[in-house]
């Protein structure tokens, strides 16, 4: 067991932690996006979906704690690697000519940091109601379903994203998440040791492809609301 734990603490072990936690977080982002796209299907769908999630009870908390642990591991390992990599070159080059690396690969720590800040903001906004608290409170018990009053998540989203500043901050955050994923997802193949030449094009295309899907999917919600295409019935 000792050799296994030493290996986990090595640079490849850290790389593996980044890849596997990154994959799990990507799974969450995809599921989160698909769930939220129900906003296009109208208030009944998304409010019922939100109600189901909020009533999972202990499962919801298990998911939250699991997600937080994975997220914490991803951030902590990234920070550890970043500081070690900074220290590995104490004297910088006078001339730097990037050729194979990409803007995305060189800015992973910064795109990651901004996405982290966005996630805090997003939780304060739609989960805790600390941002746009008036909207959060007004929509809290505003939806009448068969079994009583539920939060009107649809109205909360629509009224929230009618503020251009809020909607655009979400769009910017998604663009940075896309940049982060365009390098991250392609990297996973290399880290997990996929070497088949047949996979070479998949390796290269997977990141930008996944990033595009997520950026389009997630940005469509605030943009559609901002442009008045969704939420006409909400005042």
């Amino acid at each position: 067991m000792s050799r296994f734990t030493t290996a986990l603490g090595s640079s490849i072990g850290a790389k593996l932690v980044m890849a596997l936690t990154g994959l799990a977080l990507l799974g969450f982002v995809l599921a989160h996006m698909i769930g939220n796209l129900q906003v296009f299907a109208g208030p009944e769908k998304i409010n019922a979906y939100a109600h189901t999630l909020q009533n999972l009870g202990p499962i919801l908390w298990a998911m939250r704690i699991g997600l937080l642990t994975i997220f914490g591991l991803h951030v902590w390992t990234a920070f550890k690697l970043w500081t070690a990599n900074k220290a590995a070159r104490p004297v910088p080059y006078a001339v730097v000519v990037p050729s194979a690396s990409t803007y995305a690969s060189r800015t992973m720590i910064w795109s990651g940091f901004i996405v982290l800040a966005f996630i805090v903001y997003h939780l304060l906004h739609f989960t805790l109601g600390a941002v746009q608290g008036d909207i959060f409170q007004q929509t809290r018990e505003a939806w009448t379903a068969a079994d009583g009053k539920h939060p009107d998540v649809y109205a909360m989203i629509v009224r929230g994203f009618r503020s251009p500043a809020v909607a655009l901050s979400y769009v910017v955050a998604q663009l940075l998440l896309g940049l982060h994923l365009s390098h991250g997802v392609s990297s996973v193949f290399q880290t997990l040791g996929f070497t088949s030449p047949r996979l070479a094009c998949v390796k290269k295309a997977a990141g930008p492809l996944v990033a595009t899907v997520i950026v389009i999917g997630n940005c469509s919600i605030p943009l559609a609301i901002l442009l008045g295409l969704v939420g006409k019935g909400v005042n």
């Binding site: 640079s11 850290a14 790389k15 690697l81 070690a84 990037p98 690969s105 392609s186």
Partner: peptide, 8 residues
Amino acid sequence: GNCTNHYE
């Protein structure tokens, strides 16, 4: 340092 797949 650690490899982060820059491929330089």
